[in-house]
Write a protein that binds this DNA or RNA. Sequence first.
DNA 1: CTACATTTGCGTATAATTAACGCAAACTAA
DNA 2: TTAGTTTGCGTTAATTATACGCAAATGTAG
Lengths: 230, 230
Amino acid sequence: MEKLQNIRIAVDAIVFGYKNNDLYALLIEQKFGSADKYWALPGGLVQNDESLSDAVIRELHEETNVQLNFMEQLYTFGDDIHRDSRNRVISVAYYALVDASNLEIKADTDAERVQWFKIDEIPPLAFDHNLILKKGIERLKAKLTYEPIGFDLLPEEFLFSDLENLYCTILEKEIDRRNFRKKILSYGILEETEKFSPIKTGRPAKLFKFNNLKYNELIKNGFHFEIKFA
Amino acid sequence: MEKLQNIRIAVDAIVFGYKNNDLYALLIEQKFGSADKYWALPGGLVQNDESLSDAVIRELHEETNVQLNFMEQLYTFGDDIHRDSRNRVISVAYYALVDASNLEIKADTDAERVQWFKIDEIPPLAFDHNLILKKGIERLKAKLTYEPIGFDLLPEEFLFSDLENLYCTILEKEIDRRNFRKKILSYGILEETEKFSPIKTGRPAKLFKFNNLKYNELIKNGFHFEIKFA
DNA sequence: CTACATTTGCGTATAATTAACGCAAACTAA
DNA sequence: TTAGTTTGCGTTAATTATACGCAAATGTAG
């Protein structure tokens, strides 16, 4: 006869932010637990009566005050049965995108400290969180090229050069500024505002908005967003 | 204080097979449990000391005797907290590809009956398994276009027309036979054998093999497999 | 043996898309 | 005024995708 199942289930979330030409992830320093000296992804055990995505939202709300523009399930980590040294814990990982351009982070009850880390300056994390983060970055890179999620990392109104830099930075690729602009504009998913950038160098640049309604309409007619790089 | 976590964790697997111009999924009729009148995806609870993927392999081995050519985690279903009416169960779903062209299925201990179902003739399944299957088909369709997994549904040696029909059938699209052939051949990932098809109608067709070594070599040099349809 | 149906295998012309780059416009700073 | 900078729009060449044409190699019917 089989023993009673004794496996815990947790959720962990990668929160990506983009600011000043760099990609960041939100990490917390844990107050409790054996791994209290480590930075970790925000997360925790799922409650009996809450859905997985509700659990992620709750944990993020408890530990940070960021407003999510996008969230998606990433992967479930349960192949390393000792990923948590105390108990068997399976983690359902999510990743989320926020506009970090103008954001203050709160340090709240569950987390001693909350901090943005540049994606290439991530310290050794608790559990297998470095692995989770690696997979999250891969997914983000892939998804950027075939769905318009880059806008979820930017303010509602942004410069074309912001969008271009975001793509170049995250995908670590060069791209021709003029062809990139032409391509995105040809999709007709951007809306031109009347406003101009406050930056006082070079020719003033128009601010653009992503038109989600238009995008959804195009999708219904078989449109497929795609940004390819050499 | 929080209550003790009381959530079970299961794995379920979609096994896809392709035969005679149709896509199939493997279903089992369950012997035990409240849903014993339903067909269901093969699967079951994860044991305390086994990894998630080991659990899938074990369940498939217990319930069927198929040899997997490909297996990948699909999604974790845990947002509907009543997806199993008896207890809260979170299911980590996988999908796998097998060569069904020449295959006998065994009915074994855990499963009363095991049977292939055409993908468009799937009955109402236990739990949320129709939902899982739907997501699996979406993933299979998407992945077919950007990774060479179609070969994992075919015998080791196959005709070009088999491959072409597989793509047309699963993606439900028309495609120009000659352009499809040209494209795949241009990638250099196929190996021509000396053998010919046993079919006695029309011009005899060469049998081809997928060259996985060559493919991996190309990947390292930045190659990207892609089959687009109009 | 011949004509015909069938499927394979290879080729070519044209359309569409991508990649590479030129350059003037609109600003600031000196 | 001039130099420096970034934006915004354009043109051309290279590449890739699409739409076909057609002969080769078989089995079969007469």
